[in-house]
Lab assay of single mutants.
Amino acid sequence: MDVFMKGLSKAKEGVVAAAEKTKQGVAEAAGKTKEGVLYVGSKTKEGVVHGVATVAEKTKEQVTNVGGAVVTGVTAVAQKTVEGAGSIAAATGFVKKDQLGKNEEGAPQEGILEDMPVDPDNEAYEMPSEEGYQDYEPEA
């Protein structure tokens, strides 16, 4: 019985440690998101679009440190934060509304985080759909 109880105690310690790591990862992701939003706020009209992409990228980098179902929630929060940063930029006159959601080359930025393969159960990952990809044929 002692062996059984000791095993359960060790398992509990492992769960607590994993929860603490997840909590730490979420806190880091939130900190990076805040950094990115402050970065966007300090940019001029020309830099705002690039700044919004930076927020998304920093958040995406930190999301990889967070495991399990938390990833889905962090990704949703990050996307809403990026959308909010863009709205703030438009409201303050840093950028025109028609410039939001495009990178410096004018290509749409939507789907940055949505296409990231995420499995809350950590069982399997699927690649994003290939609808947006084109076949590449090298020139002879």
Rank of each mutant, 00 (worst) to 15 (best):
T59D: 01
G93K: 06
T22I: 09
A140S: 15
E28Q: 06
K34D: 00
V118M: 12
A19R: 02
V55Y: 13
G41Q: 12
Y39M: 12
E104I: 05
T33P: 00
Y133Q: 13
D98F: 05
S9E: 10
E104N: 15
Y136L: 14
Q99W: 06
K43H: 05
E61V: 06
D121R: 03
E110P: 09
T92R: 07
L100Q: 10
G106P: 10
A107W: 05
E131V: 06
I88V: 04
G47Y: 12
S9V: 12
Q134I: 06
S87Y: 05
G132Q: 13
D119L: 04
G106A: 07
V48Q: 00
G132K: 10
G67Q: 15
Q79W: 05
A11T: 05
E126D: 10
E83G: 10
D121C: 08
A76L: 09
T64Q: 11
T92Q: 04
Y39W: 02
K60D: 00
L38I: 02
E123V: 15
V82D: 04
T54H: 13
K21S: 06
G67S: 06
T72W: 12
G132C: 08
E105F: 08
A91G: 07
Y125D: 07
G84H: 07
A29F: 14
M1E: 00
K12M: 12
M5H: 00
K10A: 11
V3W: 02
N65K: 03
V77A: 10
E131M: 02
T75I: 05
P128C: 05
E20D: 09
K10C: 02
Q99A: 06
F94D: 05
A76V: 05
D121P: 09
P138L: 10
P117W: 10
S87V: 07
Q99N: 15
E46K: 06
G14H: 14
G47F: 15
A85V: 08
M127I: 10
V74F: 13
A69K: 06
E137H: 06
T59F: 15
L8C: 01
Q109C: 11
L38K: 10
K6G: 01
F4G: 00
L113D: 11
A107K: 09
V71Y: 06
S129A: 04
G47A: 15
E123S: 14
E137C: 05
V63R: 05
S9T: 03
T64F: 14
V70Q: 01
A90C: 12
Q62F: 05
T33V: 12
P108M: 12
A19M: 07
G14D: 02
T81A: 11
E105S: 03
Y136R: 15
K12S: 09
A18E: 00
I112K: 03
A90F: 05
L38G: 01
Q24K: 14
G31N: 07
D115K: 08
A53V: 09
K45F: 08
D115N: 06
A76D: 03
P117R: 03
V52A: 03
Q24F: 09
E46R: 05
E46G: 05
S87M: 15
P120A: 13
E105I: 01
